[in-house]
């Protein structure tokens, strides 16, 4: 019983992470688009892209599993 509850907690946390990351990346994309329309500098656009990429690499691609060996429980 307890196990089940823990499991669904984990699941809920996973959903939350996914939605938050998705929303942040979407918002950053909108910012990018807006900045470009008022002639944004290349460096700024690149910096935003880096943040977006870092979020995806960390939370969607779970780069940390490389050293923590998580997942597959």
């Amino acid at each position: 019983m307890r196990e089940k509850i823990k499991m669904s907690d984990k699941k809920r946390a996973a959903y939350r992470t996914g939605i938050v990351v998705f929303l942040v990346v979407a918002a950053l994309t909108a910012v990018e688009f807006y900045l470009a329309s008022i002639s944004g500098a290349i460096a700024v656009l690149f910096f935003i892209a880096l943040i977006k990429a870092a979020l995806i690499v960390r939370y969607f691609m779970h780069v940390n599993r490389l050293w923590t060996d998580e997942g597959h429980e």
Partner: peptide, 28 residues
């Protein structure tokens, strides 16, 4: 479910590439 994981991170990777390609092609 390594098959699922591999497919998923490959897909995200392709998305990450586009994150850089999109501004480079369209915005900069």
């Amino acid at each position: 479910h390594w098959g699922v994981e591999a497919c998923a991170i490959y897909w995200h990777y392709v998305d990450v590439v586009w994150i850089f390609f999109y501004p480079a092609i369209y915005l900069m």
